[in-house]
Design a protein around this nucleic acid. Structure first.
Lengths: 266, 266
DNA sequence: CTCTTGTTGTTTTTGTTATAACAACATTTA
DNA sequence: TAAATGTTGTTATAACAAAAACAACAAGAG
């Protein structure tokens, strides 16, 4: 009776990012299955070469995941997965905290931009990274946010983030449609997606993700939604921002003419 | 102006356990120092070979820690350490959760002891691992806990743990002394450390850590407090437990005769 | 004697680290 | 303007270290 989620490879990958090696993970998992085992039994269950079992076991004993019996032959037993993972995470969190502290002080004391860094256009790759940056920007906005959004990009968590900020700052969203209820304080304008002639399909794809203007000072342009090839541009460049502010106004006006359904929360 | 805590090697180790390589860490830290840099500048600041900078940068771009400019030459910028570490930790926590879920189901469905596993005596190495196991046992106790403790072992967190359980179960502690106030419900008996003749000093050292009897069914014996060589024995073996129950009674009686100061909380 | 256990080296493999070479392009110098 | 020089971005590949896999063997148990 296998649970659907039981993917041995995936579990091992996970344990690796908690600081175990493949063998350590295999041996630990083997021990979870049997309460108690000798080195040879571990070898049989886990597939780890018998000779390696001993050194590997030593390593996970050091990590406190396993204890050894006095008997001959020695028997080994694993602690519960909850305890084990808590223990591994504990170490990592301690490290994370140390890194946070050290790096924050580096960050605060860092040199100031020698170059007009604000004129640069930055690339961000990968849909996850883009989303994260997007929510960071939403969090950091001081006055207002204007968004032209592909609905696919307005995922639940981003909607939540927007909603949570709607009390403090002015948020305007233009989108072909909106899933779920629209919260108060959030101005959402539903427009029909513009009828773009077939031959311009590529352009349509390019602008797929949308545009986000923060405080009239930064712009994030999302250029694709595919898992792999997603790219976003980010800039504080005056010209860049001006272009997209106008672009936004254009879309807004155009949408108004062609019958935009306002759906602002009261 | 350096902070005392700024240890570059240590920070890199920490970032490694968050899943970065040494080079990735070096490059990221270099970027934190300067807001923006070209590949060559990164090379100069970080000491990473210039040719390697490009591949390393690609890797941390994938991880979302850095973005690239459109300019020529390309310029790179890092996200804030808080954001970066949060992001890295996010991945790890997701992995931890997955591992927790998968392994718990393995753990629940595991085979039952073929051997009289209860008769075994288990070794636990390392002071940290022992303490962790100790607190786990305290958490799991059903009825009562009896402890003969070396005061060095009764650290603040363990005292807290004991205190927090004192309402539900019966806890008795025998110790040469006790630091801080004794909470209600906790029976603490202060005894003078037994006068052991000089020639038995080694024995004294051996028992340094103390004995802990849980529900009269499990025993944890701690055999040393040195950071390195600490070992604990754990067993459910009937004989083993009986021995230490008697040992406990012996100490208790002997202490009473030689004038034990009871210091039980009311 | 035979099998298992525990231990120790040694090889293979893998991933990271380090160096070298080169094409494309920009800058300087004659 | 042409040649020399330097920089950038890319690729190939050598060196190295850690992990994985294998081989050999002494000690003890049956």
């Amino acid at each position: 009776m296998k649970l659907p989620s039981e993917n041995p490879v995936r579990v091992i990958e996970c344990l690796k990012s908690l600081g175990l090696t493949k063998y350590e993970a295999l041996v630990y998992i083997a021990l979870l299955k049997v309460v108690t085992a000798t080195a040879s039994e571990i070898h049989e269950i886990s597939g780890v070469p018998r000779a390696s079992v001993y050194t590997v076991i030593d390593q996970i004993i050091d990590k406190g995941l396993v204890s050894v019996s006095q008997s001959a032959p020695k028997r080994f037993a694993a602690i519960s997965p909850e305890d084990a993972i808590t223990r591994l995470m504990g170490r990592i969190e301690k490290d994370a905290q140390y890194a946070r502290d050290s790096l924050s002080s580096v960050y605060r004391e860092r040199m100031n931009p020698g170059l007009g860094t604000g004129e640069l256009i930055w690339n961000i790759y990968g849909i996850e990274n883009i989303k994260k940056r997007f929510t960071d920007l939403i969090s950091g906005a001081k006055r207002e946010i204007r968004i032209i959004a592909h609905p696919q990009f307005l995922t639940t968590d981003i909607q939540q983030k927007l909603t949570s900020r709607a009390n403090q700052i002015n948020i305007e969203i233009i989108s072909p449609h909106w899933v779920g209820g629209i919260p108060k304080k959030l101005s959402v304008f539903i427009i029909d997606p513009p009828e773009i002639p077939k031959e311009f399909d590529k352009v349509k794809d390019m602008m797929a993700g949308g545009v986000c203007i923060i405080d009239g000072r930064y712009v994030l342009v999302i250029l694709g939604l595919g898992e792999e090839d997603a790219v976003a541009l980010f800039s504080e460049s005056e010209g860049f921002v001006r272009f997209f502010v106008r672009y936004y106004a254009l879309i807004f006006d155009w949408a108004k003419k062609t019958g935009m359904k306002e759906a602002a929360g009261n």
